[in-house]
Each structure stands twice: as C-alpha cells, then as structure tokens.
C-alpha cells in the first residue's frame, strides 16, 4: 500500500513534470539551442588549451605532439619581455578603465542636465558616432593629429607653449595617455547611453522632492542622480574589471613602433608575435591561458568586494 502510494506520487510528480515540460517546450528548445551554441563556441575550443602543455607542432597535431608539462609556462615567466607586456597591459587596462568609466558617467550626467531637447539629442548622437569607427581609422586620425606637422603641434607652437614640435610617438611617456585618450574619445558617448537610460528611469518625483527640500542642481546630482544609477555603475564596473587585461590589441599594434615597443606591446601582441609569427603555438596558448586565468580572478575579487559591501553583484 505504502509502495503503491509512493508510486502514484511519483507518477503524479512525473506527470506534472511532463506537463511542465510541454508547457515550457519553447523555452526549453531555445535554451537548448543557446546551450549547444555556448558549448560549441565557448567550451569546445578550450580543448585547444592542451597545446600549452605540449611542444605543439602542426605536423603532429594535438594528439601526437610531445607532452612537456609546464615548461612553456616556465619559459613565459622567465622571459623578461613577457613580464613587461603584463605590466603594459595592466597599466593601459587600468588607465582605460578609469578614464572611460569616469568620463562616461560625467558625460551622461552633464548631458542629462541639458534643458534643450534637440541640443541634447544632437550632442548625444554626435558623441557616440566615433564608436562605429574602426581602430584603423581612429589610429590614422591620431597619427595625423599628433604628427610633427599635425594640428596639435601647430596649435601648441602657435600658442608659444612649446618652441619645437613634439614627436609624440617617439617618447615612451606619451604612449599610455595617448591610448587612454583615444579610448575616451571613441567610447565615451557610447558608454554614456546606458547611464542615460538609467537616469531616465529615476522617478521624477524624487527630483521634485529634492527641489522642495532646497537642493540645487548640484544637490540633485549628488543626492538623486548618482544614487539612482549606483547599481548600474557597480554592475558595469564589475564587468569591466574582468576586461582589464583586454587592454587592446589593434590600437597598440597600429600606433606602436620600434622606438617605444617596450611600453606599447600588450599580451595580445605578444601572443601574436610568438604564437603566430614565430610559430610557437604552445607558448602563445600558454600566454592566453594566463590572461584568462587572471581575468577570472579579477572578476571574482571584484565581485567579492561588492558582495562584502552589500552592493549589486554579478553572481
């Protein structure tokens, strides 16, 4: 009897499951497709990480190459230039993150303060257009602007701020700021869109209440707008922290030259140089693994900090 009861219960449970399945079949199908997609494109390629632990030769393939354990990683970390590219990548990544992040928020708030609707729309549209330019164009513009006869030097010389044109791409000290500036120029408008939409979601009555309490413009920004978009800011910050090591490839690759290679090369360029150009695919993969590992750790740390402070977090 007890068994029978149990069975019927089970049957009931499974029939409910079946019904649920049936009801949610479109959800399941779509979810399944996405899962398969994710598996094929995100997880299957990880199989290639095996090459980092081999002396991989394309001729022998992944199954017949010699297994060498961690030797490629040892090589990496004993290579002075790899340590240098980590430094460059981190430095440029952090600079980019801080600069683009702060600028986007400031820009969004400023834009929000514009009363003239048409002016606001036009400014916003113009500001995010550079996002659609490819880096090859942006670096071309930069190269022209910053060249010895470019507009920046002309202006500086004519204003008698400097007597001789500065060769911006010949000095190591200028490179990181130039990269950060380029990122700010290209992405500020685009990144501001998400903050602007977050700002529009703030209840207008809060502003009215603040006004009644005697808050001026600055007070409204400080006590209503900023707290209103705080959660958006934190989520975006968390996601961007994981991207710090993706400090870029194109811009450094296109703007760098032999003279400043010590500060211009990033991990991605290193991977290209050793992994592809020199044909040491194993070393390139090892450097790639390192980059992924550090990115994951960075995200975990940032997420943990957010959690501890009781803020929004990714997981």
């Amino acid at each position: 009897m007890a068994i029978k009861k149990d069975n019927s219960k089970k049957a009931k449970a499974s029939s409910i499951n079946l019904a649920t399945l049936k009801r949610q079949r479109s959800l399941l199908i779509w979810g399944g497709i996405i899962t398969i997609y994710g598996f094929i494109f995100y997880y299957l390629p990880l199989f290639g990480w095996l090459t980092a632990f081999q002396n991989y030769k394309p001729k022998d393939g992944i199954f017949h190459s010699q297994f060498i354990g961690l030797e490629k990683f040892k090589m990496l970390f004993s290579d002075e230039s790899f340590i240098r590219v980590i430094r460059n990548t981190l430095a440029m990544g952090v600079l980019n993150l801080v600069a683009t992040f702060v600028m986007a928020i400031v820009f969004a708030i400023l834009l929000n303060e514009i009363k003239n609707k048409a002016g606001k729309k036009v400014t916003q549209t113009i500001s995010y257009l550079p996002h659609f330019l490819s880096w090859i164009i942006v670096t071309g513009i930069l190269h022209d602007m910053l060249s010895g006869t470019g507009i920046i030097n002309e202006v500086l010389v004519n204003l008698h701020i400097i007597s001789q044109p500065i060769n911006f791409f010949a000095h190591e000290g200028y490179f990181w700021p130039i990269v950060a500036f380029a990122n700010v120029w290209k992405e500020t408008g685009w990144n501001a869109i998400i903050y602007l939409s977050a700002i529009t979601a703030i209840d207008p009555s809060l502003y009215e209440a603040a006004a009644i309490d005697g808050a001026g413009r600055w007070g409204k920004i400080k006590y209503v707008t900023l707290p209103g978009i705080k959660s958006t800011i934190i989520i975006l910050l968390l996601m961007n922290v994981g991207n710090v090591l993706n400090a870029g490839f194109e811009i450094q690759y296109l703007l760098g030259n032999g003279l400043i290679q010590k500060v211009s090369q990033t991990i991605d360029i290193y991977v290209l140089k050793w992994g592809i150009s020199q044909g040491d695919y194993s070393l390139g993969t090892a450097a790639g693994i390192f980059k992924s590992a550090v990115s994951i750790i960075l995200i975990l740390i940032a997420n943990q900090i957010a959690k501890r402070n009781g803020e929004e977090r990714l997981f």
Partner: peptide, 16 residues
Amino acid sequence: TGQTAEEAIGTLIAGG
C-alpha cells in the same frame, strides 16, 4: 593585407 608574412602564414597553419 595589413599583416606581416609570418602572421598571415601562422594563421593559415593554425587553420590547417
């Protein structure tokens, strides 16, 4: 186009 020879060849080899 826009690459060095080694980069282009390295990419071809990686693709097989």
